[in-house]
Structure formats: C-alpha cells, structure tokens
Amino acid sequence: MDVSPDTTAPTIVNGINLHGLFALIDDVKRDPAKGKTNWHVITTWQGQTRSRAEVESYELGGEKVPRQFSIDIDEPRELGGSNNFANPQEHLIAALNACMTVGYVAQCAVRGITLESLSIETDGDIDLRGFLGIDPAVPPGYEKLSYTVRINGSGTKEQFAEVHEAVMATSPNFNNLSRAVALEAVLIVE
C-alpha cells in the first residue's frame, strides 16, 4: 500500500485553481443544495451622504462562511456629498464589471486560455430630474449601460467570442442588471 503524500500540484490557469473549480462544479451537480448561496450586507448611514456597507459572512451550501469587509460610499460634492468615496452608481458599475471579470477569467481558465490582459469599461447616463423628483416621467436610474471588453491572451477570436457569450449567460450581476429583479421591502420605524 502506497502511503506517500499526494504531491500533485493543482492546475492553475489565470490564477484559478482548476481542481477546486471542477470539484465545486461536480459537488453542485451531485447535490444542487451545495450550490445555494446567500449574500448579506448591512449598510448604515455615516452622516451627510456617506454610508458604510458591512459584510460579515455569506452562506454556501447552507454553511456560514465568515468574511469581514467594509465598503465606504459617498457622493460627489456637487450632489451633496464630501467626495471621499465612490458613489452607489459607481459601486453598481464596479460590481457588474468585477463579476464579469471573474466570469471571463474562469471561462478562459476552464478552456485552457491564458490571459495577458482584460479590462471592462462601462458607462451609463442618469437624468437627475428623475432622482430629484422634478419629472415623474423621467426614470431615476440607468435606462442603459454600455460596456466594452478588451481581452488579450492565447485564445482565438472565435474562442473569445464563445467566452463572451458564456459570461453573458452565466454572470450573476449581468443577469441582475439585464432583467428585472424583484425587490421585497420592509420598513421598520424604531
């Protein structure tokens, strides 16, 4: 009986441990409950237009995984803020870009495509007449976000086009922003 330790190094592509990723995929295929996640953020007002979002944990497959992060948010001076941090709209776009970035990196990794560079540039317009309540016919948020992906690596144009389609089909934040998401509100006055 061979009792020597397993010295096989994990296969890493674009910083992604493929053994771990494929193990997660297999676990979720065998037991869909292992793929259930819950994300929780508490945001508290910090004065003026500043707020702080706190992340303490998330759940994966019914198990709580501790995490400690703070995200500070503000508004530009012109919109009543102190301009110390990115505003909610910038965080929303950053969250979309970051989520899609993970998708491109992972989709390339599982296909054996080594990335040399990747950037996503996103912008959108908000008409303040909606947010300020000046014109109820004007939506208070984005009506459209436009983004450009610049990607370079060992893949062909066809492979990168396939990766691009896969990211749009599987990115949680692409999905969250490209379709209506039901919001259930509860107001507690203390």
Rank of each mutant, 00 (worst) to 15 (best):
V186A: 02
Q46N: 10
L132K: 08
H19A: 15
P172Y: 05
S82G: 07
N176P: 02
Y142N: 02
P139N: 02
I25H: 14
I134G: 02
N87M: 06
N173S: 10
D6E: 12
E190T: 07
T37E: 07
A106L: 10
A109I: 14
D31M: 13
A86F: 06
R52Y: 08
S146C: 01
L18E: 04
L60W: 06
C108F: 09
I93E: 01
A182M: 02
G81V: 05
R77D: 06
D27L: 09
R50H: 03
M1K: 04
D123F: 06
N14S: 05
N14H: 05
G155I: 12
P5I: 06
H91T: 12
L18I: 14
P172N: 05
S171P: 09
N97W: 03
A33E: 15
S117I: 01
D6H: 03
V149T: 14
G130L: 03
V138Y: 00
E78I: 08
L145R: 01
K29L: 11
V110C: 07
P139A: 05
V110M: 15
F22G: 08
G103L: 14
P140E: 04
F131V: 03
V55A: 06
N97F: 01
V3W: 07
E75S: 15
T43M: 10
F174R: 08
F131L: 10
N97P: 12
I151F: 13
A53Q: 13
S57T: 02
Q48V: 14
D6F: 02
P136Q: 03
Q46F: 10
A180C: 00
I25R: 15
D26Q: 13
A185F: 11
I16P: 10
L128Y: 11
P88D: 06
P139D: 00
A185M: 10
F160Y: 15
T170K: 07
N83L: 01
A53I: 09
D135G: 05
N176Q: 03
C99R: 14
G103Q: 14
N176H: 15
A94N: 12
H164V: 14
D127L: 05
D6P: 00
G61S: 05
R150E: 12
G130A: 06
D72L: 10
G61V: 10
L177R: 00
E75W: 11
R179Q: 02
Y142H: 05
E165T: 09
I42R: 15
E162I: 13
A182G: 00
R30V: 12
A137W: 04
T114K: 12
L183R: 04
Q107F: 11
V149E: 12
D135E: 04
K144I: 04
S4N: 00
I42V: 15
S146F: 06
P66K: 15
V55D: 05
V167N: 06
I71K: 08
E184W: 00
G133M: 04
E143C: 02
T114L: 01
R52P: 07
E116L: 11
L118W: 09
P88W: 11
I42Y: 09
